[in-house]
């Protein structure tokens, strides 16, 4: 049974580390659905959030293979517990003056933001789970989506369960 897993990976912030991680996935025919990476509070450490699909055995291998990489500090399968995950999308939607109100209404419902406006289009920013973003895209589609970009998922475990590696630096 394939299921979705959100894996949080703390890595050393060194050149080539992203290539090591992504190369491990491609070389072993594992799938990366989405990947996001940025430095943490500690500039020497970056956090990657990898969303992947696989059977239990595959996910076990993915986690072990990640841990085996020398530059990897800590690996955690967030889907094993409660966690919060978010994506962000920027959507440039066709909006001449007559349609602006329609766009605004939809954006309002989804608690999105208008971050740019031109004479015939607007850029909408939305954050949320994948489902919410897809729902908004669906509603905006009839108005005419000109361009769209989505980030990968970022995630943290809920409550006190830390994915931190070093002490309070984060």
């Amino acid at each position: 049974m394939e299921s979705r897993h959100v894996i949080s990976v703390l890595v050393e912030n060194k050149p080539g580390v992203l290539a090591r991680v992504s190369g491990m996935f491609s070389g072993r025919a594992f799938n990366i659905h989405s990947l996001s990476v940025a430095p943490t509070m500690s500039p020497d450490v970056s956090r990657m959030t990898v969303v992947t699909y696989g059977s239990e055995a595959i996910i076990e291998q993915i986690i072990k293979q990640l841990r085996k990489l020398i530059n990897v500090i800590k690996v955690q399968d967030l889907t094993q517990g409660d966690y919060v995950d978010r994506e962000m999308a920027l959507v440039r939607v066709k909006a001449t003056s007559s349609k602006r109100a329609d766009v605004l209404r939809i954006v309002d419902i989804f608690r999105g933001k208008i971050v740019d406006i031109a004479s015939d289009s607007m850029i909408v920013e939305i954050t949320g789970g994948a489902g919410k973003i897809e729902a908004m895209i669906e509603l905006l589609t009839p108005l005419g989506i000109l361009e769209l970009i989505r980030t990968g998922t970022v995630a943290l475990p809920r409550g006190r369960k830390s994915t931190r590696y070093s002490e309070p630096s984060e």
Partner: peptide
């Protein structure tokens, strides 16, 4: 060479 040998070394360095 670091890029080329990444998947066939335990680790490598530049």
């Amino acid at each position: 060479i670091v890029g080329i040998t990444r998947p066939c070394t335990k680790h490598n360095y530049l």
